[in-house]
């Protein structure tokens, strides 16, 4: 049996349709040299379809307890400030915001907690992939 090409649009389309029909939130297929993650829109904080040839996920954990925010609180009458590229969110403790940063340049693969969720020390916050 020939191996399925996980990067083929037709494959992704077929799998996505099957997931939607079955009411499944998403799937992840990982095999040497290739991986595919499909998360159905509206079922998770991050809804992505991604294919990576060298997928290496890493979990970022909460450095302390607090309320996790994906972005800075909006300032009335001002454009929302974008967070820096190396910051995947903030832990709010009272009036303080502790930036949650990645050690190296990375992109958020998916968030493991929703915006404004209370997390404890060491709780997984996000899955990142190295760039």
């Amino acid at each position: 049996m020939s191996k399925m090409d996980l990067s083929a649009p037709a494959t992704i389309e077929t799998l996505t349709a099957a997931l939607e029909a079955a009411g499944v939130d998403g799937l992840e297929i990982t095999r040497p040299g290739q991986s595919l993650r499909i998360v159905i829109s509206g079922t998770a904080p991050a809804h992505t379809v991604s294919v990576s040839d060298t997928f290496q996920a890493k979990i970022v954990k909460a450095p302390m307890a607090g309320q996790f925010l994906c972005d800075l609180p909006a300032v009335p009458g001002c454009q929302t400030r974008k967070r820096p590229a190396d910051t995947l969110g903030f832990l709010r403790v009272g009036p303080m915001l502790l930036p949650v940063k990645t050690e190296t340049a990375a992109c958020v693969h998916r968030y493991l907690v929703d915006h404004e969720t209370i997390v404890g020390f060491g709780d997984p916050i996000a899955e990142i992939t190295s760039q």
Binding site: P73, A74, V75, C78, P95, L97, L98, P99
Partner: peptide
């Protein structure tokens, strides 16, 4: 200051 920095919620938000 922690290596990741330490921010505060802007007064315009906190004292809206």
């Amino acid at each position: 200051i922690p290596p990741c920095g330490l921010a505060m919620v802007e007064p315009a938000v906190m004292l809206a």
